[in-house]
Design a protein around this nucleic acid. Structure first.
Lengths: 192, 192
DNA sequence: GGAGCCGATGTCAGTGACTGTCATCAGCAT
DNA sequence: ATGCTGATGACAGTCACTGACATCGGCTCC
């Protein structure tokens, strides 16, 4: 039935995500109840928890996509590329994605920076990305512990670069900051 | 009054820590209520929360001490030492501490490995250690972003080394695993 | 085109983590 | 003695999160 709506408004999940982000920005994360998020989205609290495991997870819905993106970027890197360069290329490409959605990335990061619990969730998502990168490297024939160390080093670079990008008021492009940070890591591990 | 006890048994905080670890091992973290911990320690739930910010924090009481230890180790490293070597020495020394309390470290880690929430807390404590290391490096005159990158790389090495140590059934000494992991990181960042 | 299944949502009652507030009382100082 | 302090208890309250069951449009199947 064209133009008609079904029993419910479409895209419940997306409405919950948007309502949550708005409220977290307006009042802060802790001052927002799940009931309020659900109400703004025209749903009930119970439905929120059917879409998101907890109140924090609603801010990290895109993590799975990012994970897949990084994995396929590493998998698709030329065979000749050294592991660290395969990871670097993947991170730069991911950085370009975030750069495209700069406004959203900055808003989201401001919310996370203001709450310790959200930072914890962010860190475990980053650890999960490192884990996925390590697995992708193993698929390329990289052995342990090189695979895990390369992945963790890459994520560390990404973390620092992202901080510098958000703090730096966006003077530089994120992929460029990532590349510079990696070069700095190389210098620093060499003993300088 | 020598030998007499005051109004309360001494070391309430320590009793809570021990009761919590025991229960987390016996039944698992989620299956343990704070009321049960308090009861085993001969206290009330409210008192638990006066000593620990939340149910997870009781497992991370030693984090502050470790932080101070690492900072003074970096601060006390010879001026001639390169930043990465100052951090490496600090981590090896910290590794020796954990090696001395091997049984406790392994028990605690088994509890953490079994629960995602505890892993989140562990990660933010590690991030806090990286932050403290970076500050200690800045005190030595290391500039950004080198300080943060060195600190994060060091913590990444520590994280991987600790995993290998716990999984490896303790075949190797932790400080040695840390050193080997750092060498591997150096190899890997060089482009190999 | 009616019967019945299915999936997304609503409703409701419950548990447990965590907080605010006030009461208690041994030990200590004055 | 008097009064203060610091650690604890008692108690009520909020809110995140869960389990169980009800609802009902849209779909398939015949």
């Amino acid at each position: 039935m064209i133009g008609g709506m079904g029993r419910w408004e479409p895209n419940a999940r997306g409405r919950l995500e948007q309502a949550a982000l708005e409220l977290y920005i307006e009042r802060g994360f802790e001052q927002t109840t799940v009931a309020e998020i659900a109400e703004r989205a025209g749903l009930t609290e119970r439905t929120f928890f059917r879409h998101f495991a907890d109140k924090r997870e609603v801010l990290f819905a895109g993590a799975g996509t990012l994970r897949e993106f990084l994995v396929s970027a590493v998998t698709g890197a030329p065979e000749s590329a050294a592991p660290i360069e395969a990871v670097a290329a993947a991170l730069e490409a991911a950085g370009a994605l975030l750069q495209e959605r700069r406004e959203y990335s900055l808003q989201r990061q401001a919310v996370i920076a203001a709450n310790a619990g959200l930072q914890e969730r962010e860190l475990i998502k980053l650890a999960s990305l490192a884990s996925a990168l390590a697995e992708a490297l193993r698929q390329r024939g990289v052995t342990e512990p090189a695979a895990s160390l390369t992945a963790e080093a890459g994520i560390a670079v990404f973390k620092i670069a992202f901080e510098r990008w958000t703090d730096g008021a966006g003077q530089q492009e994120l992929p460029q900051v990532i590349r510079e940070s990696l070069d700095e890591l190389k210098a620093v591990t060499t003993g300088k």
